[in-house]
Structures are given as C-alpha cells and as structure tokens.
Design a protein around this nucleic acid. Structure first.
Lengths: 215, 215
DNA sequence: TGCTACCAAGCAAGCGCTTGCTTGACAAGC
DNA sequence: GCTTGTCAAGCAAGCGCTTGCTTGGTAGCA
C-alpha cells in the first residue's frame, strides 16, 4: 500500500499527460508504444494500423498494449497530445528568443519544420496534422484550446511583422496560407534530399518577407 | 458481342478511365458508386470506409458494388483518377485563357480551388490529395506521369510571372509552398463560411504577387 | 433466350479487446 | 536466510464482431 490506491480501475495508469513528473520516469515501455504507434499512424494511417502492428513493433503480443492503454483511441490521443505540446513548446521558445522580427519569424519557421520533419518526434506532429480527425469528438474538443493557442502565436508573429513594415497582410487567411505551406512540406520533404530544414525555412521567410536588405 | 470480348474476366467491365466515350454513357450506377465512394473516402478516409458504407449510400446490398468494380482498391483508383483528370483539365483551361500573366495566374488559383472546394466533384480532388497513398504501388506509378504534368503547369505559371517581373522566386520549392497553401485550404475552408473561393484566390494572388498596381 | 444488374446468404480472415494466468523483482515477517 | 505476499508487466488464448469479397440465383428487359 505504497500509493493511495489510484482511481478504482484495476489496471493501467490510463491518465497520463496530466502527470507531475516531466518525463523520464515514464515507464519506457509505454513510451515505446507511443513512439511505435506514432511511426505507424504516420506511415499507414490510423485506421490501417492494427494493434498487432503496434504490438509487434515493440516486441509484444497483441493483447499486451492494453495493459498500458485502455483503447486504440487512447494511443492516438497520446501521440497527438505529444505532437501538439512538443511543437507548441518549440515554437514558443523561438517566438521569445528576443531577436529581430525577421530573425524571430525565421526561428519559428525552423522550429515548426523541425518538429514536423526532423528526426525526433516527427511522427507525432505529422500524426497530429493528418490523423486527428479519427479522434472522437470529446477528445478533439479537448485539443481545441491548445490548437487555438498555437495558432494565436502565429497570428501574433504576423502582426509583429506587419508592425515592423515587413509584410502587408497579417489577416487570418494569410496565416492559414502560411501554415498550409509549412504543413504541406510533409508531403514532399525527404531527409536525404538536397534541401535542409534551415534552407527551407530561410526560403519561406524570403518568400513572405522578401530578401533581407543589408543596410 | 458488341465489344471485342475484353480480357477474360467474366464480370465487371473493370477497365474504365481508359475508355473512349467521355462520360455520360457511363452506366450511371457505376458513376453513383464512384461519387459515393469519393464522398465517403474524403469524409472518413479510405481504410475507415467500408464496402457496406458505399453500398448503403447508393441503396445497394454489400455485395453488389463488386459487379461494377473488382476490388475496393479499384474504387479508390476510379475516384483518384477522376479527381486528377478533372483538376488538370480545369487548370489547363485557365492557363490558356490568354489573359494577362496576373489574371491567368489568378484564374488558375480559382480553378484549383474550385475543384478542391467547390460543389461538383470536390471529394474527388480531396481524396486524390489525402488518400492516394493507400493505392498500391503499381497504380501510384500509373499516376506519376499525370501528376508531373500537373505540377509542370504550375512551374510554368511561376516562370511566366517571374519573366513578367511580378515575382522574385520561381523555384521548385516556391511551387511547393504555393501548392501547399492551396491544398491546405481543404482543412479550413467551409462553404457556409464568410469567404468565397474567389476571395481566397484573389488574396493568395495578392500575397504572392502583391496588389495589382493601376497604371 | 440471353444478358444486365442486382440480391440473399455467407465464407475466411482479421479486427479490437478481454480474460485468466505466469513471471521476475522486491519487501516484510519470522 | 528462507518463506510469503504483493505488484508491475506481460503472455496465451480466444470471444464476438466486422471486413472484403464470392457464389448461386433471379427479375426485368431486349
């Protein structure tokens, strides 16, 4: 009786994402499942990915993941939440880096693309973008606030650019075009291709703002 | 024995899309299935859509669609092909409208968005964008040429704009950004929303080129 | 009579998920 | 130092259901 007897549900610590510890104390096996699920959801899509796929990817039998997650939906939820918090954090850090408006904007582009295309956790963000619709409505509602906050960061970034006289249009549609261009990179970017994430971010910044003028 | 006896397969005229007649002579019921499949594939995704869903949507029993299509994959193929040929045709018409570079470009944007968001056949184009990966590789290879041709049209459009001095960057990445902004509209455009397709096309043209200057 | 277009019924495989049980690690009691 | 109890983590088996697809038959039209 070391712990004060959880919630009543016999097994599975189900909650997650409302935990106190930052990570690391995460059981590891649970994190393994989330990683494998993210990779497979991204590669094949949620519906086309089976529990047996995920279990096999971490060397388990098909029933065992359900010790860690109540349902397959919960796995998707974990993946998407991971992606959303990770990309939010990364871009928020870039947004408050205190550089010039243009440098800040470019840093935000790099952060977004890094989460989407980089090695670590790229499947989380990609799954977030393309498989969120398979979450049932209650969970989607849970995400709305986080998403809104994320989009507000970009809206503010555009406002700052306009105030600095670097762009002409900081409307909502302009933000949607920008995020569209960013998110669509998932469809064509190849890590072994000729373009680096930094180059892509730079080029998009040039496109939106124009080349930086040396004074 | 009106046709020279197809391939040997007993039922289903399977081929399609390599037909001589343009449409209209299409059995109607087969076209119904393609429309329903497109709508459902777009709404729920290919894997999450069942044959029973599609059959039910056209008032058939679950086995009957297989009179018209050999497999579920073939239905997806028909939807995607329909989407790709339709959007290619629409944009090609706009590209050769003989107007000014800017007006031509904006017409192409309208055509692309019209296919993607408009009423007629929007599910075909949307399915093309998001569900093509569920086609097996041979069919995907079949589409590559068509896709390349489509992208080349946009590349040429950018080249013309640059030659006219209206944009600075006509690189491939610029084209990918542009198509990303366009294709991402599927995620946020609502037909009953406050923005029309024309407005969106205009705004994107402004963003890429800058507001038109009255001489 | 023959062909088109469909239905009624159902098959084999695979699906998400549950159940009862095993295993290894660790701590408490004697 | 050995037993005993507890717990996290997983396995083996399989349940009920759904899936894509098949098959044999037939109503209606030409």
């Amino acid at each position: 009786m070391r712990n004060p007897a959880p919630t009543g549900s016999a097994r599975a610590r189900d909650v997650m994402a409302t935990r106190s510890k930052p990570a690391a104390e995460e059981t590891n096996r649970r994190a393994d499942i989330v990683r494998a699920a993210g990779r497979l959801f991204h590669a094949k899509g949620y519906s086309a990915t089976t529990i047996r796929d995920i279990a096999g990817a971490v060397g388990m039998r098909s029933g065992s993941p359900f010790y860690h997650f109540k349902t397959k939906q919960d796995m998707l939820r974990a993946v998407v939440l991971e992606g959303l918090t990770a990309i939010s954090t990364a871009v928020a850090v870039a947004a408050h880096s205190g550089k010039s408006p243009r440098a800040t904007f470019e840093a935000m582009l790099r952060a977004h693309l890094g989460q989407l295309l980089g090695v670590e956790g790229r499947d989380f963000a990609a799954t977030l973008l393309h498989e969120s619709r398979h979450l049932d409505p209650e969970v989607q509602a849970e995400l709305v606030e986080l998403k809104d906050r994320y989009e507000a960061m970009w809206q503010k970034a555009l406002k700052d650019l306009k105030r600095a006289g670097l762009i002409a249009d900081d409307s909502q549609v302009a933000r949607l075009f920008l995020l569209g261009a960013l998110n669509w990179t998932v469809q064509w970017y190849r890590p072994d291709g000729s373009r680096t994430i930094e180059q892509i971010a730079r080029q998009l910044a040039d496109l939106v703002i124009g080349k930086p003028q040396r004074l």
